Amino acid sequence: MSELIAERYRLVEALGEGGMGRVWQARDELLDRDVALKELVLPRGLPQAEIRDLRERAIREARAIARIDHPNVVRIHDVIHDGGSPWIVMELVVGRSLFEAVRDDGAMAPERVAVIGLDMLSALRAAHRAGVLHRDVKPANVLIGDDGRVVLTDFGLAATTGDSGMTSTGIVLG
C-alpha cells in the first residue's frame, strides 16, 4: 500500500526531483482525482533556523503561483502540512518537460518552438502582471502536456512584489 499524506493524498509515483523538492503523482482520495504533490526535501544537518526559512520559502512559492490565473501556468490547489513540512498540491500535467522532449526526440519543428515560446511569453506576462518574477525559466521547468498544452512550473525561486526575499548565504537553490 502506498503512503497517505495528510490523510487524503495517496502517493502513486515520483515524477521528478531537484533543488529542494520532489514532485509526486498522487491520488486525492476525497475528490477522486489525480494531482501533483511537491514535497519539500531538506538536506541533512541543517540548523533549525534554515529549516524554518526553507519551509517559509515553500509557502512563498505556493503563494506566488496562487497569484497567477493563466492556462500556461501550473494551477495550485492547496498547501497541506504533513510531517512538519508543507506540501504544495497542484494540478497534474500529464506529459513531459521540454528538456525531456528535446533530449528524447531531438530538435523540434520551428513552428512548434514558436508556439512554445509564445505560450511561455504569455505565462511570464501573466506572472509579471501578478507581481511575480519567476527567476528560473529553463526547459526542465516547462511542461508539455500530452494534450499539447504548455505549462510553466517550479516557482521556487520566484520573487513577488513586496517580498523582502529569502536569499541566504550558503544555501544552494534551483
Score class of each variant (00 low, 15 high):
146 D>V: 09
95 G>L: 04
110 P>G: 08
114 A>S: 14
133 L>E: 14
92 L>W: 03
143 L>H: 08
106 G>S: 00
129 R>E: 10
144 I>Q: 05
163 D>S: 01
154 D>K: 07
131 G>W: 11
94 V>P: 05
127 A>H: 04
109 A>M: 10
129 R>C: 04
129 R>H: 06
109 A>L: 11
141 N>S: 15
100 E>C: 00
101 A>R: 10
105 D>C: 03
92 L>Y: 05
160 T>R: 10
140 A>H: 13
123 A>D: 11
114 A>M: 15
91 E>I: 13
140 A>D: 10
131 G>P: 14
100 E>Q: 09
134 H>L: 02
119 D>E: 08
119 D>Q: 10
159 A>T: 07
157 L>G: 03
94 V>L: 05
94 V>I: 01
118 L>F: 07
100 E>H: 06
133 L>I: 15
114 A>C: 14
162 G>A: 05
105 D>K: 01
137 V>C: 04
157 L>S: 13
97 S>Y: 03
87 W>P: 06
120 M>N: 06
147 D>T: 12
104 D>F: 12
103 R>Y: 00
122 S>T: 13
107 A>R: 14
98 L>H: 00
140 A>E: 14
163 D>A: 02
148 G>C: 13
132 V>T: 07
149 R>A: 12
97 S>R: 07
143 L>F: 08
109 A>D: 11
94 V>C: 03
104 D>R: 14
123 A>N: 13
156 G>C: 08
143 L>N: 09
98 L>M: 06
134 H>Y: 02
161 T>F: 09
103 R>C: 01
104 D>Q: 15
89 V>L: 15
90 M>N: 01
125 R>L: 05
98 L>S: 01
134 H>E: 00
157 L>Y: 07
99 F>A: 14
128 H>C: 13
153 T>N: 04
107 A>G: 10
97 S>H: 02
122 S>P: 09
139 P>H: 10
87 W>T: 01
97 S>K: 05
140 A>S: 14
138 K>A: 11
135 R>D: 05
142 V>F: 12
157 L>W: 08
160 T>D: 01
138 K>P: 09
134 H>A: 01
94 V>E: 02
86 P>H: 01
121 L>F: 15
158 A>Y: 06
155 F>D: 03
99 F>Q: 11
142 V>L: 15
148 G>S: 13
151 V>K: 01
133 L>C: 12
109 A>F: 00
125 R>Y: 05
160 T>N: 03
142 V>D: 08
104 D>E: 15
92 L>F: 03
127 A>M: 09
86 P>L: 00
122 S>A: 15
90 M>W: 03
137 V>P: 03
159 A>D: 04
128 H>D: 12
106 G>C: 04
95 G>E: 04
108 M>C: 04
160 T>H: 07
135 R>L: 10
161 T>H: 07
106 G>M: 03
96 R>H: 15
128 H>E: 14
159 A>K: 08
102 V>E: 00
110 P>C: 06
137 V>K: 03
87 W>Y: 15
124 L>K: 06
115 V>Q: 12
109 A>E: 12
138 K>G: 12
116 I>E: 00
119 D>A: 15
117 G>V: 10
137 V>N: 04
108 M>L: 13
161 T>W: 07
151 V>D: 02
153 T>I: 15
90 M>R: 04
133 L>Q: 14
161 T>D: 03
156 G>Q: 11
127 A>R: 07
147 D>C: 06
99 F>E: 11
116 I>Q: 00
